[in-house]
Design a protein around this nucleic acid. Structure first.
Length: 643
DNA sequence: GTTTCTTCAAGAGG
DNA sequence: CCCTCTTGAAGAAA
């Protein structure tokens, strides 16, 4: 089977960049300034009596035929098994605690992210963090991920709250991006404030995507709310010289030239108010001086690019592109005839590919896949139009064609008895779009599960979308996950994870990605099926990652993740041995970027919810998608073996 | 510690 | 779509 349980853990950066044998180093920085010799480290039981089958079309009949075929398999085997044994085969639902299990080594490095207090300014102590072991990498990735989830949850919460108070589209909007950051700062929720980190920030990977400048401040990637150059100021540097830490290249200066690996960057200042034109000479001070000093001492800077992106809330995203060095610095006359400081900034070799160029590549790939990659495609749509977007199948490393052997199943096959009997279910009576207080909102605990953009607001034990018995149109905002793919996906072959899945689009955090499909089996059916050595997925084994999504208890301690509607009993297994969809190829990770949210909409059997997959973070194009399959209780031991 | 100043934000309106 | 205005918050410097 191979691909069903891709248990190879997927933790970025990919293993080829790791060297787990090396102890983490947190180097004091000041000495290096004086030595002038920086050391840049490389960096149902099966219902016997048949219930009436609802009216179905031809295609669905074939699908049901498959269900009955499998049911028949069990019918013969079922009688030989006893209930007691079945219980044993049904493992307890286990919620894997993921935190604080990362080993003792971490404790040394956690010091650098110790929560800052409310009034504290940034520290003046400079450090460089390199050669983190894989456990530490996972730890920091998780920390950054969680911090970003809080930020995003808070931001969306503030917007929702404002909408609820003032109604849609009236008056000026509050700056939720700023407000969320400010609230987190007050609670000490910002990262990396007790040390100034030179070089890469632990837990932030090249290619990571941000929608707001303030988010860069929150995680400590770039500490300036607006200024493009962040640096350790003179007053805080032991050598009396400023040191640049990070720059943002976002096209705001007319004299910039961005060629990717090489940037001609303009210093800041000299611009008139409300205009991007130079109107006075720049001075060698502040960030300009810091960049010059960083060049002199050969110190690397982080580079973040602002890149146009229609899907982003502000038409722009910020992409972390890795470390660069300033190799040249001069004073020049700019296009407007005033003096500007210019810096030639070159990307350091042997880093993962730049996020911004991956962005560009992915957009070309969407437009003309075959001209960019003439060989390697096994299918340009493995779903054969069953999905509303093509699902690519790509393998350029070996001859494995395994995914072609399975029938593509866009929706799971539920047992007929899970569908409602005629006219027994009720839906809402909303005509255009669902409104507050309608039946469907009540089912979800009085609020809608999604925002206007279809972003999942909070993880819940189960989400009720509007269904077949509702009168609202398909465009209703409570029909997010039942509408199919919105982002293009590619199943691809990887040396690290076997078969995996990656998007061709940027997927914003909280977005619906796809459903996990297969043939739904009762536990009794499943237990027999499992004896035949076939591939089953048990929904109850997915750790409850949804509790992490939309959790703002860090800022509002009273906040509790909803426990209503009640958790489904999840008394089923999903058979993917013959029919499956793209979700089946997601890799496993203990720091996943995708979560499982149970959703009900088309049938009434609460034990058989849909397994809907949502993005837990902003997922850049071509980054592999990963799910927590809940199999890695012994993960740390496994790691030890791998190393 | 406080105040002033600058700043490659982001929203809204023209 | 681009320009301009407004509001805004952090951090550096004084």
């Amino acid at each position: 089977m191979g691909s069903l349980f891709p248990f190879q853990d997927l933790n970025y950066p990919p293993p080829s960049f790791l060297n787990p044998k090396i102890e983490p180093k947190i180097e004091p920085f000041d000495d290096q300034l004086h030595l002038h010799q920086p050391n840049f480290s490389n960096t149902s039981n099966y219902i016997q009596e048949q219930l009436p089958v609802p009216e179905i079309n031809l295609e669905e009949q074939q699908v049901y035929a498959e269900f009955y075929r499998i049911s028949e398999l069990f019918r013969s085997a079922f009688s030989k098994r006893k209930h007691g044994e079945l219980e044993v085969l049904h493992p307890e639902l286990s919620i894997v605690p993921h935190h604080g299990q990362v080993g003792n080594k971490v404790s040394s490095s956690t010091a650098i992210v110790k929560k800052a207090l409310k009034h504290s300014h940034r520290s003046s102590e400079m450090v460089r963090v390199t050669d983190l072991g894989i456990e530490d990498q996972i730890y920091f990735r998780d920390l950054v991920r969680r911090t970003r989830m809080v930020y995003e949850a808070l931001r969306i919460f503030l917007i929702q709250e404002e909408d609820n108070e003032k109604g849609l589209g009236f008056g000026k909007r509050m700056r939720a991006d700023l407000k969320a950051a400010s609230l987190m700062k007050d609670r000490g929720g910002w990262l990396n404030r007790d040390k100034r980190i030179i070089g890469s920030i632990p837990g932030v990977y090249i290619g990571d995507v941000f929608f707001f400048r303030m988010e860069l401040c929150v995680i400590g990637l770039h500490g300036q709310a607006q200024a493009g150059i962040d640096y350790v100021p003179i007053s805080q540097s032991s050598s009396g010289e400023p040191v640049a830490t990070s720059i943002i290249v976002s096209g705001g200066y007319e004299d910039d030239e961005d060629a990717g690996d090489v940037i001609i960057y303009t210093g800041h200042g000299g611009q008139s108010r409300n205009s991007a034109r130079q109107c006075v000479h720049q001075k060698l001070e502040g960030g300009n001086l810091a960049l010059e000093r960083s060049k002199f001492y050969d110190i690397e800077v982080r580079v973040i690019r602002g890149v146009k992106c229609d899907k982003a809330p502000v038409g722009k995203v910020y992409i972390y592109d890795g470390l660069y060095k300033i190799i040249d610095c001069w004073f020049d006359i700019g296009k407007s005839g005033f003096g500007v400081y210019k810096y030639r900034i070159v990307r350091i070799a042997n880093q993962p590919e730049m996020g911004s160029s991956v962005f560009k590549y992915a957009s070309e790939l969407r437009a003309k896949p075959l001209s960019l990659r003439p060989s390697g495609y096994l299918s340009l749509d493995i779903s054969k139009k069953k999905e509303n977007l093509p699902v690519f199948l790509f393998n350029d490393i070996d001859s494995d064609r395994d995914p072609l052997l399975y029938e593509y199943l866009a929706k799971p096959i539920y047992p007929p008895f899970s569908y409602p009997q005629m006219n027994t279910s009720r839906g809402c009576d909303c005509i255009s779009s669902c409104c507050d207080g309608c039946l469907c909102a009540q089912r979800n605990g009085g609020e809608f599960p999604y925002d206007r953009n279809g972003i999942l607001l909070k993880g819940k034990p189960v989400v009720f979308e509007c269904g077949t018995s509702c009168r609202c149109p398909p465009t209703c905002r409570n029909r997010v996950s039942q509408s199919g793919l919105k982002y293009r996906l590619e199943i691809f072959r990887s040396r690290e994870t076997g078969w995996g899945v990656r998007p061709l689009d940027l997927i914003p955090a909280g977005s619906f990605i796809c459903e996990y499909t297969g043939v739904v089996l009762t536990m009794q059916q499943a237990s027999i099926f499992a004896m035949n050595g076939d591939s089953l997925v048990y929904p109850s084994r997915f750790p409850e990652r949804w509790v992490e999504w939309g959790d703002i208890s860090q800022v509002y301690p009273d906040f509790k993740q909803p426990t209503i509607p009640q958790a489904p009993s999840l008394d089923f297994a999903m058979d993917v041995s013959r029919m499956r969809n793209v979700a089946c190829y997601f890799s496993h990770s203990t720091t996943p970027n995708v979560l499982v949210q149970f959703v009900m909409y088309d049938h009434t059997n609460a034990s058989y919810p849909h397994l809907m997959l949502f993005a837990m973070e902003n997922i850049p194009p071509l980054r592999e998608l990963s799910l927590d399959y809940g199999v890695a209780d012994d993960w740390t031991e496994k790691l030890a073996i791998c190393n």
